[in-house]
Amino acid sequence: MKILIVDDFSTMRRIIKNLLRDLGFTNTTEADDGQTALPVLKSGSFDFLITDWNMPGMTGIELLKAVREDPDLNSLPVLMVTAEAKKDQIIEAAQAGVNGYVVKPFTATVLQEKIEKIFERIEGS
């Protein structure tokens, strides 16, 4: 399971990376915004994308849309982990094809729950 973590704050990437390791996911790569994430996604066979929303350069929602438009990446599961909490934003992300949405601040349990739910649904379909 290869996971890409995208967040402009290195400390948040580190927190998510640590939580993922506790959940047994050790193969993680980091990127600091959508612009750097997209080529990384295109070059490697990633199984899962965790992204923040508010980032300089290319935001998480733009990254999500770019992923859904790319024929090689469009089925990649995407979990949004963000402080953005406006209902319109959550609806926008849902319409853009997000697989899960976690608002910051979050707990390890919530992150685990959402990741497991996404995989359950993928395996079930």
Partner: peptide
């Protein structure tokens, strides 16, 4: 849908969620 960062006055706003349960 413009990014706004953490919401600091959740109680006074109707256009935001109050937490993960709301999401």
């Amino acid at each position: 849908i413009e990014a706004e960062g953490p919401i600091i006055n959740k109680e006074e706003r109707v256009d935001v969620v109050s937490g993960q349960d709301d999401v």
